[in-house]
């Protein structure tokens, strides 16, 4: 139900469609193992960290690929149905630039905001950082859970 022509919403829609096109394209063309450098942060402004989102009856799970993050720099905040993940991947310290033979791992600060399909209960969100993967367990808000309605038969 849209009352007015909303340019912001139109742009948002266009952006989403473009994202979808590029995602489909890159999956076809770059589906070669050597192209999967996808968890490289910092080198250019690309989406980081990459996430997988799963859902069951009670929870939404967000799994983010973020190796080598300083655990104390990780910040997760939740507002209604958006999750914001921020942190910093520290660069290798005390090494002169000319001492590097290879430098493929990026470093730096990152922020990513993810929209979830449902509202979540911000007070009960759990975050766990293990082996370079951040796992968020976000319980769904009571209002977002399906309700069983009893039918009385006369």
């Amino acid at each position: 139900m849209r009352r007015w022509w909303d340019p912001i919403q139109e742009l948002e829609q266009l952006k989403r469609e473009m994202d979808e096109i590029f995602r489909a394209f890159s999956e076809d063309v770059f589906d070669i193992p050597s192209f999967r450098f996808s968890f490289l942060p910092g080198v250019s402004a690309r989406t980081y960290p990459l996430v997988n989102i799963a859902e069951d009856k009670d929870n939404v799970y967000v799994e983010a690929l973020a190796p080598g993050i300083a655990p104390e720099s990780l910040e997760v905040s939740v507002l209604n149905n958006t999750v914001r993940i921020a942190g910093e991947k520290p660069a290798v310290k005390d090494v002169k630039p000319e001492a590097f033979h290879r430098s493929e791992r990026g470093a730096g600060k990152f922020i990513r905001t993810i929209s979830l399909p449902v509202e979540v209960d911000a007070d009960k969100v759990k975050a766990e950082y293990k082996n370079g993967i951040l796992l968020l367990t976000l319980p769904k808000a009571e209002s977002a859970k399906p309700k069983q309605i009893a039918i009385s038969v006369n």
């Binding site: 050597s34 450098f37 968890f39 490289l40 190796p67 080598g68 290798v92 001492a99 290879r102 493929e104």
Partner: peptide, 21 residues
Amino acid sequence: RPPVDIFESPEGLTVIADLPG
């Protein structure tokens, strides 16, 4: 193919590889 950093010091080489998960 995990991304790596390799750097050298007088003592030797250090290889750092990102292996999430």
